[in-house]
Design a protein around this nucleic acid. Structure first.
Lengths: 335, 335
DNA sequence: TATTATTGGGTTATCGATAACTCTAAACTA
DNA sequence: TAGTTTAGAGTTATCGATAACCCAATAATA
């Protein structure tokens, strides 16, 4: 249907190979022939067929970005960074959302393998993503993990310093005078959730505060579940006066649940969390957060990936850790 | 490098064509042969090469989503809808941000033509995108416009009812007692900006309010420019008491500028705008907006596109118009 | 002048799949 | 029993490009 190099060649009175050479600027071509071919290409609106080229070159110049949900502001910014970096490096970007479902993740792994993308920037659902990663590894497809690491697989990664961020948030609450601090944690099957919990525990200990089992909840992301956990926490004989939510979604759910119970934030309960609640500029951010440089996660992730693809990376796996920035705001009485 | 049907064929002692038939469930294959081939495919971790298939089938099963900026909450949700719909229909999605720059848009058009995507879901920068659209049309590549239409091109589109939304927002301000309402409009080279201005003007007229030239500003998205416009408006002998911003970004910039001048919203100036300021759930939305069903924009856009690609669409161009929902909130004293 | 390089290409095979056609043996039919 | 179907494959060409090798004419060199 579309114009091919053979059509161009016929018009120009040369071989397809000559056209290919003009396109790629390889081999020896006389200026005269080159110009003739270029003119005809323009005239006929020739557009090279990247798939045909990919087939013989064994590279597609397509990368895949597999995240859990583009509407999570962290991933929104990350995706933007990834796209910008990919474009700059001459790659296109295939987007997919896994919703933290392993089945979707697996399905998508099949898709990218089939599409012969050159690499995958991958935010895994959690430790259970291991088989999916092994699948990529077995097929020799380069990938870079972002945000979460997965025990059992060695690879390049771009992570945040979850433990450090958790320490700072917890310290902040303690400095605000809180002694009864609850943790609304994410699934223990996710590396960041574990690190955040570790930071929380360690900070309590260093501050001489008791670690209380009953102050720790492990919640999935369903709103109902969050509300149940919050309810239980606030019904304790000594209810917490502050809540550390392990991520933005949990924090939103928690504040909703608190309000539903007639509790005010921060007057009755202070709340802090990981990750911003919004992607772009926002008017009056309410939540005290440990914000991560999401855009940079995307940019660096793509760069690591492309380095690896192009064989420019050192043999050893690289592990980039980006520090979070704590923003003190109203939700913790921080301002 | 990766396993091909020829490798499978050799192992199974049959021809490549037989393997292809098993994969596609076409032709006649004995159960015995089929099972043998399937077993070997699994054993050897065979993954079909979608590019090779695309080359001969003349379809890639890839769609392209070209938006202005994924971090704009409207496009964040739209992208999610598009991806969900694409997946459901068996397509992959290539993502790109144009930043409303025609050059980036053009560059990306070249990319998708070269990638031989099956279609493009396209949020154009504005009327000036016409040549880019004509390029797609000339190459016979199906596309669907989203959010904005472009005079001079006929095609499928999914639009919001900008005029109606503008009317409702303006009416709301009038009902709140405002008589001096300014419009901070977008570029007149964008269809939605024109429609919103039309709705604004019409509503003023119907309400017997004068249309004042000096109350209308046309601003691009640079923060400095927004601030300058706001400054001018508020320095008028009779400054406006309410401001209708044509989109979320303008509204943000306007509120910033107002605050920098020591003006409070909504006490000194009420502000309303088109589109939500955030993509997902948010705690206490402040802005009175005409919200558009962004997710549905994406889903419907992809469906129109795929219908068109698969020849299931009626010959006539379809134009889907989705109504906005007005949310009355604090920024206009609406609640 | 004879020989070697270089220029400016062309030819053929290949990437990994599918379309379209062919072919053979067994089954079925008249 | 001879002819016709049909099941179950195989063969070859093709999609649109590039890699690798080849080749004639001209230019440079001994």
């Amino acid at each position: 249907m579309m114009v091919t190099i053979y059509d161009i060649a016929k018009q120009a009175g040369c071989s397809a190979m000559t056209v290919s050479r003009v396109i790629n600027n390889t081999g020896r071509i006389s200026d005269e022939t080159r110009q003739r071919v270029l003119d005809i290409m323009k005239e006929m609106n020739y557009v090279p067929n990247a798939m045909a080229r990919s087939l013989v070159k064994q590279e597609s110049r397509i990368l895949s970005l597999l995240i859990t949900d583009i509407t999570n502001p962290f991933y929104t910014s990350l995706a933007r960074g990834a796209e910008d970096a990919a474009r700059e490096l001459g790659y296109r970007l295939l987007l997919a959302n896994s919703d933290e479902e392993l089945a979707k993740e697996k399905e998508y792994i099949d898709t990218v393998l089939s599409a012969r993308v050159d690499g995958v920037l991958f935010a895994p659902a959690g430790d259970a993503s291991l088989p999916n990663l092994k699948r990529l590894r077995k097929q020799n497809l380069p990938f870079v993990l972002i945000d979460r690491e997965v025990p059992g697989i060695e690879c390049d990664m771009v992570l945040g310093d979850s433990k450090e961020g958790a320490k700072r948030l917890t310290s902040h609450l303690i400095e605000q005078g809180h002694a009864r601090i609850a943790l609304l944690g994410g699934s223990r099957g996710v590396s960041t959730a574990r690190a955040r919990q570790a930071g929380y525990e360690e900070t309590l200990q260093l501050s001489g505060l008791p670690y209380r089992e009953e102050y720790v909840a492990e919640s999935h992301y369903r709103a109902g579940e969050i509300a149940r956990h919050v309810k239980r926490l606030m019904a304790l004989p000594e209810p917490p006066t502050a809540l550390f939510a392990a991520n933005n979604f949990l924090a939103l759910g928690a504040i909703r649940a608190l309000r539903d119970q007639g509790l005010r934030v921060p007057e009755d309960v202070a709340v802090v969390c990981f990750d911003e609640l919004e992607a772009g500029f926002v008017l009056d951010p309410f939540m005290t957060v440990a914000a991560q440089p999401a855009y940079d996660f995307g940019v660096l992730g793509i760069r690591l990936l492309v380095d690896r693809i192009q064989g420019k990376a050192a043999e050893d796996w690289r592990r980039v850790v980006l520090p979070p920035t704590v923003h003190l705001r109203r939700s913790s009485g921080g301002t």
